[in-house]
């Protein structure tokens, strides 16, 4: 973008310019959605609330400062709690921008030079409901289905949330940390890793 603001060079700070810019957009447009953020290090991220996620993502896609027009990857990570704490599931969106290719600020990063933005959402493990972003990026469709299939995140507001990789009647979500290998599936025995 020709009218993109010049990012001042600050060699002292290791902050990631792309994530910083996305955070700036979010703080002006969705100020109460941002929960936490990490600007330095190899993997900067912004954590946001699950409510209104689709609107927030649409802002990130359409805003002139970010223009994140590609949803690269959706990941679910299971963090089981200890004792009474049920734990959380983190859903991570890696977004990137083709439109910003000419933008020099995108290619000046401290630790890495790969201009993606990571948006995190954390939801309780017993009610892992995350609004869908399918209408923002259609390609999120299959990624969401896979995250549901393997980690068990329920994406709300979208049609057709079915398993994609595993068979329909597969027990549980294998990438949950407390998932146990079934003894057999349709009469074919599965030897558990402990017994091998």
């Amino acid at each position: 973008m020709a009218d993109a603001p010049e990012e001042p060079e600050t060699p002292a700070s290791n902050a990631d310019p792309v994530t910083e810019r996305a955070l700036g957009v979010l703080e002006t447009e969705h100020a109460d959605s941002v929960v936490a953020s990490e600007m330095t290090g190899a993997h900067p991220w912004i954590q946001v609330k699950a409510e209104g996620l689709a609107d927030l993502m649409r802002t990130l896609r359409d805003h002139d400062d970010t223009q994140l027009d590609c949803c690269h990857l959706i990941t679910g990570v299971d963090y089981p709690g200890k004792g009474k704490d049920v734990g959380e599931i983190e859903v991570l969106y890696h977004l990137c921008s083709y439109a910003k290719r000419e933008d020099a600020a995108y290619f000046k990063r401290a630790e890495k030079n790969d201009p993606w933005v990571a948006i995190k959402v954390r939801v309780p493990r017993d009610a892992p409901n995350v609004p869908t972003v399918m209408e923002v990026w259609t390609g999120a469709d299959w990624h969401e289905r896979e995250t549901y299939d393997l980690v068990g995140v329920r994406f709300t507001g979208r049609p057709d949330l079915r398993r994609i990789l595993l068979p329909e009647d597969w027990p549980g979500h294998p990438l949950r940390k407390d998932w146990e290998t079934p003894a057999s599936y349709h009469g074919i025995p599965i030897i558990a890793p402990e017994d091998l």
Binding site: G41, A42, H43, H72, L73, T75, V77, D78, L92, H94, K112, D114, W116, A118, L175
Partner: peptide
């Protein structure tokens, strides 16, 4: 820590996201 790295494969962009909790195996 965590990391996301991608590279250009013949078929497109392969991305690898790793979460480590300091053990010899990855957390995710």
């Amino acid at each position: 820590g965590e990391i996301y790295v991608r590279g250009e494969n013949p078929r497109g962009e392969l991305g690898v996201y790793i979460v480590s909790d300091g053990k010899p195996t990855a957390y995710r």
